[in-house]
């Protein structure tokens, strides 16, 4: 039994893979800090600047400690069971996504060892399915807390999910057609010479918009529109219970950026002369992947402070009347392109 067999033993990789949850949690805390600091810079404010030096980088940890010392409130009119379970589902959906996502890879010679807790043959469908679970969690939170603002937010959230899940699915289909696989690792490997963003620019744009809507980021955060809906689905939540839901959403943002990099922006692939360097070359794909994810997260955060919010009916119309037909067009383009590749370069 050599080391690769041990590392890829499902029990071993499943238990050691739990470290990834910790790493993603830290990333989510950093994303909260980044959002506040970056937003402050854009709006000429100061932002967090006390905890952890001049840039307030430990602000997130201070906030987390504060959440632990807050009283846990469940409103008298709330449905206690739904109210308690809902944040677990929102957070759990994020956890279940972490299993299947490879966070970079170690490349030794011609062998690629993705850093993932598991490698399924249908991981992209699995990711779609578990990421959609959070919508159910949000609806449970709203229905359970028995608050009018929460209910309106949850209905809007449903409408948005309904509008954007279909274009998202068709875009992923376009990628799967080109890579000839539903395994996200294989899809990332298939982009070794050329990123899919260059082959399907239209698909990338649609996917980017749809995943923004899926994550509930501006301009698609109608469910948390603070000017009209107080705090959206989390109005009745306080303390750590609210914190769990919030972290669930930020985890979704970080993981959404990861999926975008894996599907369209070439994943961890580097040219061979770079990965050939001893030791450093084997680790370089991880930094390359993480670097791209950070850039995408920064763009997503920047969009929040740059764009105004749409009205909910405009959002749903955009999904059904623009993105869906265009995504079908992109699918036809992807099939035609891959058939042409197959005809000219195939066996």
């Amino acid at each position: 039994m050599n080391i690769v067999d041990i590392v890829y033993n499902p029990w071993f990789s499943g238990i050691v893979g739990l470290i990834l949850i910790g790493i993603v949690f830290v990333c989510a805390i950093l994303a909260v800090w980044l959002e506040r600091k970056f937003g402050a810079d854009i709006q000429s404010r100061i932002g967090p600047n006390r905890v952890g030096g001049r840039y307030g980088i430990l602000q997130g940890i201070a906030d987390a400690i504060k959440l632990f010392t807050k009283e846990d409130l469940i409103p008298a009119k709330a449905d206690r069971l739904l109210f308690v379970i809902a944040p677990i589902i929102v957070l759990g959906s994020g956890f279940m996504m972490i299993v299947a996502i490879p966070f970079g890879a170690i490349v030794i010679g011609d062998n690629v060892y993705p850093i993932a807790a598991t490698q399924m043959d249908i991981s992209i469908i699995y990711l779609e399915a578990v990421s959609a679970l959070s919508v159910i969690g949000i609806f449970m939170a709203a229905y359970g807390s028995n608050n009018k603002y929460s209910m309106i937010a949850a209905f809007r959230n449903m409408a948005r999910m309904i509008g954007y899940e279909v274009p998202l699915g068709v875009c992923i289909l376009g990628v799967a057609v080109m890579a000839q696989s539903l395994d996200i690792v294989e899809i990332a490997k298939a982009q070794s010479p050329l990123w899919f963003v260059f082959l399907q620019p239209l698909g990338f744009v649609i996917f980017f918009i749809a995943i923004l809507a899926d994550m509930g980021r501006l301009p698609f955060d109608q469910n948390e529109a603070e000017e009209e809906l107080v705090a959206g689905w989390g109005t009745e939540y306080s303390g750590l219970r609210w914190g769990l839901g919030l972290f669930g959403e930020y985890i979704h943002m970080v993981l959404g950026a990861c999926i975008m990099v894996l599907l369209y922006l070439g994943g961890w692939n580097l040219p061979k002369f770079l990965t050939g360097i001893f030791v450093l070359g084997s680790l370089m794909p991880i930094f390359w992947f993480v670097g791209k994810v950070i850039v995408i997260v920064l763009i997503i955060i920047m969009l929040r402070w740059a764009l105004p919010r749409f009205r909910i009916d405009q959002v749903v119309d955009l999904g059904w009347k623009v993105l869906f037909p265009l995504s079908v067009l992109n699918l036809i383009w992807a099939v035609a392109l891959s058939l042409a590749f197959d005809m000219f370069f195939g066996a």
Partner: peptide, 10 residues
């Protein structure tokens, strides 16, 4: 085997 980690994470 590829779903054992899913159960652990769940």
């Amino acid at each position: 085997g590829s779903y054992i980690p899913v159960v652990i994470f769940l």
